[in-house]
């Protein structure tokens, strides 16, 4: 077996080398610095201070952008770590047009559902998959739904899509259901979700437009329960944008 990367041996809880990560959000700090909120593969969501990257001659400013796969090195004892090195992982799918706004929505969801320093490598993998889905305009909706499902699964709010409540019968494609975020599907003739949609969500196979529309309503309802009345800013902006176009 090959020896692991040399840098791993040097890693301590104070210094992290070459960690795969994505930038979720960034804000300006002082004259030339940035505070970036990143999703790392092995350390969860971390805030980093990127010193001096907004200078005219900065080499890293072009790399420190959301939706770009990076490997980051950083150190620090406090909650805010200091970024020391950035590298780009080539090649990566680029988001264009509306997909960028959807990407920001995904970032906001991560910011809401993941706590700082709570590692979720599986969310990182889903995020990568979601970004490549968003880069193709035909799979945007499906990529968002699948990411929402996987994120909820990962943080312990996974949906019960196999059996109905309270009888525990298997989901039938032609039956209609109500959906309760905690209990699962409840059979009802006036239910707004078809069994077909629930099965498609369970299998993560979303192609039919009817299924996608229902899945969107369902996921929005479920996420609203966990947001607890807190509005998603990106969703408001996306609605405004769609109205203008």
């Amino acid at each position: 077996m090959n020896a692991p990367c040399k840098a791993w041996g040097l890693m301590t809880d104070r210094a992290v080398y070459l960690q795969p990560a994505f930038i979720l959000q960034q804000r300006k700090f002082r004259e030339t610095s940035l505070i970036i909120d990143v999703l790392t593969r092995d350390f969860g969501r971390v805030s980093l201070l990127a010193k001096g990257v907004r200078k005219a001659k900065s080499k890293t400013a072009g790399l420190l952008q959301p939706f770009v796969p990076l490997t980051l090195s950083y150190f620090g004892k406090s909650e805010l770590k200091t970024l020391t090195d950035v590298e780009i992982t080539q090649p990566f799918p680029q988001l264009q047009g509306l997909a960028v706004y959807c990407g920001f929505y995904v970032n906001e969801l991560i910011g809401f559902f993941l706590h700082q320093f709570d590692p979720h490598p599986e969310v990182f993998a889903c995020y990568e998959k979601c970004l490549s889905g968003l880069s193709d305009s035909s799979t945007i909706e499906a990529a968002l739904r699948i990411f929402e499902l996987d994120l909820l699964d990962a943080v312990g709010y996974g949906l019960q899509l196999n059996h109905d409540f309270p009888d525990g019968r298997a989901i039938q494609p032609l039956t209609h259901y109500h959906f309760n975020a905690e209990q699962g599907p409840i059979e009802a003739t006036d239910g707004s979700f078809s069994g077909k949609t629930l099965q498609a969500l369970q299998l993560r196979q979303l192609t039919d437009p009817q299924v996608l529309a229902e899945a969107k309503t369902l996921m929005r309802k479920v996420i609203a329960v966990y947001l607890n009345g807190k509005p998603l800013k990106s969703r408001g902006v996306i609605n405004q944008i769609i109205q203008h176009l």
């Binding site: 920001f104 800013k233 408001g236 405004q240 203008h244």
Partner: peptide
């Protein structure tokens, strides 16, 4: 600039005026 995470949308940027 349009910044979904800060809740800045077309209305805040005066894009109706441009339109």
């Amino acid at each position: 600039r349009l910044s979904p995470l800060d809740g800045i949308g077309p209305d805040e940027l005066g894009l109706d005026l441009l339109e």
